[in-house]
Amino acid sequence: MSEQFSEVDKLRAALFQSIQAHSETSTGHSGDIARIDVLTRIENVILKIIQSLSREEAPVLVLKNRSSWSNVRFDQSLGLLMSSDATITTVRSDCPSSVTKFAQVLKCLLSIYRLVQSDSYATKRDIYYNDPQLFGSQKSVDSIVDDISCMLKVPRRSLHVLATSKGFISGDLCYLEEDGTRVDCNSSSTAVAVSSNVCGIKNIVSSAKFVLIIEKDATFQRLMDDEFCTQLYPCIIMTGKGVPDVNSRLMVRKLWDTLHIPVFALVDADPHGIEIMCIYKYGSVSMAFEGASLTIPSIKWLGLWPSDIERFGVARDALIPFTQADEKKMNSLRKRPYSSCQPAWESEMELMMRRKCKAEIQSLESIAPQFLTRAYLPNKLRYGDWI
């Protein structure tokens, strides 16, 4: 235990020395308000720690609870937002159960301060490898970076910490990365990885009429193989490969803000697919503190609808029976604050519950091998068949 306290002391001292050493520089960039603001907020956190020590009190960090639905509120035009009176978690430096996290937060704050002060960037993986023994796992770093973003009330991208993107994008789209690299997404055979610094993207050029978000990578690859973007040119397709990472969500939001075109979602007719679509549209509990900049409230559900299963004659052996986990997830979805805002979605979910079965997008292949790309999607888009 004494070693853990010693580590906290060293981290606190290192961060304080860094703040002292760079205090003049941090206030010298008069034009860089955002960076100065981040530095000041970190300094304020450390100042409180120093003040506690001067009073011979154990320093504490106060973090908002990002895992409870009771801490979020719903705004129909913005999605899920963190409540102003959200419950908090106190991370104490003198408590055996939280001293390690206290040290981890300080270590991350030190890394972030130095990155922002020097106007440089690092990945969350880089931060983890600064002290893998302290952090224990990459997941700890990921969570702590979000905790710090929420605590400082600063968008995560302003912390100069980047995350590797897992999403891919293709279609009528060109843009410049922050370093000046030109990216062309027009290839019909190869998709482009979503940028790890979406906010640095500039000079977006596109004639696309719509953006189609695809839940799974397998379906995205199928659309690529069938040259969907060429068939319905001009358009943009993108996948977050399941539950989307923040960069994938930021990319869709940036396209929506810049191009002012419709955004559609193609997901499995199951509770998991619907939840993924809701994350793009309304946000998530864990990122509600940044919800207003990540959600796309105008997203429309293009498919696969539970009612499409019977409507298009999907083979019975292509359907999957509901599990207890599916029922639990569906009941949870239907209780969420945004469900009542979408009566058509609610009807589809009720139908799924009655039939006790679900279907993947690939089930449409039971009708015909290229039914999805040659008939289902073109007709839905042509005739405005979305909800």
Rank of each mutant, 00 (worst) to 15 (best):
R92V: 04
S165W: 01
S93V: 12
L106E: 03
S158H: 14
Y113M: 06
T90C: 09
D119P: 00
S140F: 04
Q117D: 13
Y128C: 09
R114F: 00
L110H: 14
R92E: 10
Y121F: 15
S158I: 00
K124I: 04
L162T: 08
R157I: 04
S149P: 06
L115N: 11
R114Q: 15
N130V: 06
V161I: 14
R125Q: 11
S140D: 05
R157Q: 13
T90K: 11
Y128M: 08
I144Y: 04
V91G: 01
P132N: 12
I112N: 00
I112T: 02
Y113V: 02
Y113C: 02
V105I: 15
Q138I: 15
R114S: 06
P155H: 08
A103M: 01
L162K: 05
S111G: 05
V116W: 08
Q117A: 15
I127N: 02
D147K: 06
T100M: 03
Q138R: 14
V154F: 06
Q138N: 13
Q138Y: 13
Q138C: 06
S165Q: 07
L109W: 03
P155Q: 09
K107D: 07
T89D: 11
R114C: 09
R157D: 06
T123M: 07
S140N: 12
S158F: 11
V145N: 08
V116G: 06
K107W: 04
K101D: 07
S140E: 13
F168E: 13
V161R: 04
I148V: 15
L134Y: 03
L106W: 04
I148M: 09
K139T: 13
